[in-house]
Design a protein around this nucleic acid. Structure first.
Lengths: 236, 236
DNA sequence: GTCTATAAAGGGATAGAC
DNA sequence: GTCTATCCCTTTATAGAC
């Protein structure tokens, strides 16, 4: 599972990396099989053929393993999306790729994600999806959408908010995915395609010069709500 | 806490209603004070001056009490929003009222709501925010926004999707509220006002005849995704 | 019957030997 | 780096007191 990203990130540095990956693989398999809570550190260590203490040497605890899963998903998304961006010419293709690759990565983890959902309600939890602890992960995630629209001729204010809005859409789609019980997650796939078409429509409308005041308003809302940092241009 | 809604819903029918309300009040106070998980049915019964068995007579368990809280919030929202709608003339005022009353009702329950958040990730849980079990509650919640825009001269397709979109906005604002640590939730209040202004802008744009194809697309997306039932007009 | 005290089990986490 | 041993907390089960 982690082979691709791990191999890319650390080119066979040491045997210890191999062990770490082994623990991650085992843990993820167990999470999928019996759920997050039902999986103990003992199970993970045993499954990886290690003593409990060894597992703790590599990860501070189960939480840290899940954190590594977050990091893996993010890194894998970045890599896969970039690869797709190099092929995909149109904005539509790029946005579809950004969203589909995310589901590709998570397609076996619906159960796990449902369990991880709960941390979203606790701002102080390290695994919260929206809390300060995951800010860096979030930034990287938004960055993928920044890259997806890079190269588009867009007004500055659109360039500033679009990545965050696309990230929000992507979170909404993940929520839909969480509830999707259609075979092979067809409905999620369809939703992605349809949502991207809508985004293309919305882009056309939103970029009209006439819409500048509306865009300003959105920008100000997000800034006031601290959902968007001050932009470079605003600071300049 | 439950005085207002309970009194309105059941005009002093019996002492048993009084007891039920007593349990709810006690439970809610304890949830707020020490959290959902830390509160046991024993604590609730004791706090309400009842034996454990008596508490179980009124509610099947802690979960059922939380369900009653959901119902209370919904009923209270309906009542308060309607009262405000009778005063408020403009669409802006009505939308603000619909959103602010919701926060008014929940302003003491941030901690509880953070704990309840976790059920959102489990489609099969009775307390899931998006699952089938809460469909009726959700319908009632959407209805408030339906009433908020009632009387507006709007194209049919807008009338059909707007309540759901406003409900979604309202869920987003609740998520923001969950994370809001500003005094008196000022930031959430500001966000509501700003978001409503944006909605007014969006309404102006979206209702242009030119936008009809885009509206159709949105309608079809929501229908395909089963987020919106077939409309009356579509069935006719 | 209901409550409470205590024991047993399970599992997260750490220390120190090798 | 990996092991064994151990700690400590939480949950669950049970048994005896009221």
């Amino acid at each position: 599972m982690f082979k691709d990203a791990a191999a890319r990130a650390i080119p066979q540095r040491q045997a210890s990396e191999e062990t770490r990956r082994q623990i991650l693989d085992t843990a993820l398999a167990l999470f999928r099989e019996r759920g997050l809570d039902a999986t103990t550190m003992r199970d993970i260590a045993a499954g990886a053929g290690l003593a409990l203490g060894a597992a703790y040497y590599y990860f501070k605890g189960k939480e840290a393993i899940v954190g590594a899963y977050y990091a893996y998903v993010q890194e894998e998304h970045r890599v896969r999306a970039r690869a797709a961006f190099e092929q995909a010419g149109t904005l539509r293709d790029r946005l579809r790729a950004a969203l589909h690759t995310k589901i590709d990565i998570m397609k076996n983890d619906q159960k796990l994600l449902r369990a991880l959902f709960r941390f979203g309600g606790d701002p102080d939890h390290p695994l919260s999806w929206f809390g300060p602890a995951s800010r860096e992960q979030r930034r990287l995630s938004v960055e993928v959408f920044e890259e997806a629209i890079a190269g588009e001729k867009l007004p500055d204010d659109v360039l500033e908010v679009a990545p965050l809005l696309l990230w929000t859409l992507h979170m909404g789609i993940l929520l839909y995915f969480l509830y999707d019980n259609s075979p092979a997650y067809r409905r999620t796939r369809k939703l992605i395609d349809a949502a991207v078409d809508f985004v293309i429509d919305a882009k056309r409308v939103a970029t009209l010069p006439l819409m500048r005041p509306v865009r300003r308003r959105v920008l100000n809302i997000l800034r006031d709500a601290k959902l968007l940092g001050e932009s470079e241009s605003a600071r300049a």
